[in-house]
Write a protein that binds this DNA or RNA. Structure first.
Lengths: 252, 252
DNA sequence: CAATAAATGTTAAAAATTTAACAAAACGGC
DNA sequence: GCCGTTTTGTTAAATTTTTAACATTTATTG
């Protein structure tokens, strides 16, 4: 299969992720080749496309959203993250205004949120927003700004101000590393201001991290452990840690 | 609808729950009636079946989802939208800062944007952002705010200010209706302020609408046709319109 | 740069589908 | 049973899709 052909297949796939369906002739126009070439491309990729009566569709729809995230996270403690987030979700009450951090853990919390419970969720990352916006009966507030691919989040100079003007009931914060003596850290500089602003204004602060994050140190330190009211993690967490964190450690 | 017809529809449904797809002629054989009768049965049950290119599928997502997806696209002129957006994409130049409106049309433009061309894209809807954020070498700025499900977009009191502080090179605007005498309209009140702020500040303004939007009037009027530098649409657009819009009409 | 292979385009005929109009059959009320 | 209505079938023409064969272009290699 030639590179051109692969490019066409990729372009077609991306297009189908938007439109779901395309007619053969429209695909030919779109890709700037003849219908015959599209036919041959599609026939070469039986595992990707479904072709029926002149229409092309993707064989596996919904490549975005949580499923996509799950896929990319395979082998990166998905189960632990999910568990930690299910525990954290228990601390969301009807009427709450909650803050959801960015990263690869918090999407599981977004997913675990109850529906139709008069909850307002504030977020600043695209993968969390995608999930929140699909939940029925949930108010969603998005903090805008410039996109940072490293954390799939948005941030700019107004972010801190915007946060300080919000009344956050409970903040659910993630982290790349938790070290008892050094504190809580992450990898991306642009997240620090936002996290600190949230910690400053939120009434309750819950750290949501799976057990593999303990004793890890990432470049940007953004908080001390004592600043959190609670840590939600998974049962694989060393129970001996609980006595030294300076705040309650919930593991189940 | 006769009892016989109902029985056939039930039998067909049961069959599709097993096989997912059946050809029209096979369904006719199966039910012991003519193809024409099956056609009419299926047409009478638009909410149950999806029919395309000689194949019948169930609309219910449980049955594999294909029919459900296909149906959402029917009558929504995806091909026209795609065409209009491909035309519009030609007016994006390297180094540009562009604004992308919300709605069901502009995602096709987001998809058609060139990669790695030093382009900054400003958006305020989740479905446009999802696509932009996946594009390599594209700077993305998201305008935040409260989520409005009707247009999948974010807006709040700061949105207008944020827009007026941006230097937009070219704005790509969508609309629900275009009427030569009344002007350009949309359905959602919260979009109006944003659209008007963009029209106020952007150097170039391009209206991107498929040909079915002409002579339609939606509740919220937000601009006069003369405010746009150009309209990008599809070749199905009545060429006679071009002489009366007050701005260039690009159809191919 | 020629020779070869691979990829793509063009075309026309065959097959399938859509559409519309009308004929035939079945049904229901009187 | 009769009559009007609804349902179903038939047909033919228009349109679209499919297939296959061959021409042309593009890439690759020595």
């Amino acid at each position: 299969m030639s590179i051109k052909s692969q490019d066409r297949i990729e372009a077609l796939t991306r297009n189908l992720e938007v439109s779901n369906v395309i007619r053969l002739k429209d695909a030919a126009d779109l890709l700037g080749v003849s219908e015959m070439t599209v036919r041959r491309d599609v026939a070469n990729c039986e595992n990707i496309f479904t072709y029926m009566g002149g229409y092309i569709t993707l064989k596996s729809p919904a490549a975005g959203g949580l499923g996509y995230i799950l896929d990319r996270e395979r082998g990166s403690h998905t189960d632990l993250k999910r568990t930690a987030c299910q525990i954290a979700a228990r601390y969301v009450k009807p009427g709450d205004t909650i803050f959801l951090d960015c990263g690869t853990t918090i999407p599981y919390l977004a997913n675990a949120l109850p529906e139709n419970r008069d909850i307002t969720a504030i977020c600043y990352s695209i993968n969390v927003a995608e999930i929140l916006c699909k939940k029925p009966g949930l108010r969603v507030i998005m903090l805008g700004g410039m996109y940072h691919a490293s954390s799939a989040s948005f941030a700019d100079s107004n972010s801190v101000n915007a946060i300080l003007n919000l009344n956050i009931n409970t903040a659910f914060m993630s982290a790349g590393g938790v070290n008892i003596s050094r504190g809580v850290s992450c990898s991306n500089p642009h997240e620090v201001d936002i996290k600190q602003a949230v910690l400053e204004t939120a009434a309750n602060k819950i750290l949501v991290v799976d057990s593999t994050k303990f004793n890890v140190i990432k470049p940007m330190l953004f908080a001390k452990l004592e600043q959190f009211d609670m840590i939600c993690t998974d049962p694989k967490c060393d129970p001996e840690l609980a006595t030294r964190t300076g705040c309650p450690l919930i593991t189940q």
